[in-house]
C-alpha cells in the first residue's frame, strides 16, 4: 500500500503513519486515520495489534479495510492482528479537521445536522436534502439551489 520503508523499531506513530496510506474504498480521498477509525494501536515485540471502529455497523467495506491494514503492516515484518470493535461508537466528530477539508474538496459535505449542511462547491446554505439515503450507508443526497449542483453529505452519527 505504501512505499515508505519500515523503520527498524516500529512504534505506534510509525504504524499510524503507514495507516495514513489506507483508505475506505467508499471514500477514497480520506485515510482511515483521518476518518477516525483507528481506535488503538499496540506494538509488541512480536506482533502489532490494531483496533478499528466501523463507521456503520453493517458497512460492507470492513473486510476490505481490514485486509488493506494487514497488507500495509506487512512491511514491519511482524504478525498483524487487526479487528473491528464497538468498544466505543464511531461518531462523525472523530473525523479530523484535515479529513473534513479533504471531504469537502472532493465534493462531500462533512457531517453536520441536516439544517447546517453547506454546499461543498459554493458553500451556500441554500441546500435541500433530496434523500436521507445515498449510494452508501454513510451519506445522504442533497441539492444546492445556489449553484444547482447535486452533492452528497455525510450523515451525522
Amino acid at each position: 500500500m505504501s512505499a515508505v520503508a519500515a523503520p527498524r523499531v516500529p512504534d505506534a506513530d510509525a504504524v499510524r503513519d503507514i495507516l495514513r496510506g489506507v483508505v475506505d474504498p467508499e471514500i477514497p480521498t480520506v485515510s482511515i486515520v483521518d476518518l477516525g477509525m483507528v481506535e488503538r494501536i499496540e506494538v509488541g515485540p512480536e506482533r502489532i495489534e490494531v483496533e478499528l471502529l466501523p463507521t456503520f455497523v453493517g458497512c460492507p467495506a470492513q473486510e476490505l479495510i481490514r485486509g488493506a491494514v494487514v497488507d500495509a503492516l506487512a512491511s514491519f515484518g511482524r504478525q498483524a492482528i487487526v479487528g473491528f470493535s464497538f468498544r466505543r461508537p464511531w461518531t462523525s466528530d472523530r473525523i479530523t479537521a484535515a479529513g473534513r477539508e479533504r471531504l469537502a474538496a472532493s465534493g462531500f459535505a462533512p457531517p453536520a445536522e441536516p439544517a447546517d449542511v453547506r454546499c461543498p462547491y459554493c458553500t451556500s446554505a441554500r441546500v435541500a436534502m433530496d434523500s436521507v439515503f445515498g449510494p452508501t450507508q454513510c451519506r445522504s443526497l442533497f441539492y444546492c439551489r445556489a449553484c444547482r449542483q447535486p452533492f452528497e453529505a455525510f450523515k451525522l452519527v
Partner: peptide
C-alpha cells in the same frame, strides 16, 4: 428512485445489525 436507494440502504443497515 430515491426510495429504491433508501430501502436498499435501510435493508443493508438492518442486515448489518442482524449480523452483529
Amino acid at each position: 428512485l430515491e426510495e429504491d436507494v433508501a430501502m436498499s440502504s435501510l435493508a443493508q443497515d438492518e442486515l448489518g445489525h442482524a449480523r452483529a
